[in-house]
Amino acid sequence: MKDWLRDGPVDLRTKIGLAEMLKGGVIMDVTTADQAKIAEDAGAVAVMALERVPADIRKEGGVARMADLRIVRTIQESVSIPVMAKCRIGHFVEAEVLQALGVDFVDESEVLTPADDQYHVDKHAFRVPFVCGCRNLGEALRRVGEGAAMMRTKGEAGSGNIVEAVRHLRTLTSEMRRLTTLRDDELMTTAKDLGAPYELVKDVAKRGKLPVPNFAAGGIATPADAALCMRLGAETVFVGSGIFKSENPARLAAAIVKATARFEDPDILVEVSMDLGRAMAGIEMSKLAPSERLQERGW
């Protein structure tokens, strides 16, 4: 059976290789060099350099684009851990710019306003690895088919509400489990129903997992949220607005790092969850109009 990490094309192996290095860690959204340092000191495995965190993008509205490159460059110069940045869905030129700037991972993200309402970036054409969001298996495999080296759940970014990330993780894992129970002659129709490449459907049916690492994102606000995602099968967590919209970012960041590494141990969770101050204010999903749901973006 083909193993993408060990048998894939060289470029894909270095890309998935970096995603492997990030496993078990926490990737944090930052908007300044100071925040990036706080994240690195707290033990983040990588930072996502942004102009605004998702909660502010949501509040301020307007078109959200790739971050000011000066911000990204300043953050690159301030930390030694990998620096990621977001491009708009389908905006392959923003992706090229970020690659030329030397970012370590590009997130083709629904958090920004889509630049293309039909097509995503052809990620095979890049040397820089991409991460993309998904809500279900079909979406995940379409992105992997386009060359994504890492998947993450979309959740609902900037909401401080874990419910959508949980839904997406559960959907993804139960769809993968179901595939492993199917007969070979049922896989083509299943691929059609999922809207996913047949070869990748066969691969998941054999291995029961995605061909690339699978991380969680969207609404993680506490150490227990992070541990919940890990328990549901995520291999790493992204924390967006949760950290720097909280009362004590440095303390919360360190707590989430520890909780993610030892997600299976409730005693550790007790220790890190004590006295963290106020978490970010969250949004109840029914208060979000469909047009305000970032997870609906992507095709």
Binding site: M21, G24, G25, D41, A42, G43, A46, I81, I268
Partner: peptide, 15 residues
């Protein structure tokens, strides 16, 4: 293993 050395140091310390 491979990973981020700054993270590994931090985790060795806090754990």
């Amino acid at each position: 293993p491979g990973g981020e050395s700054t993270t590994l140091w931090r985790l060795l310390e806090v754990l």
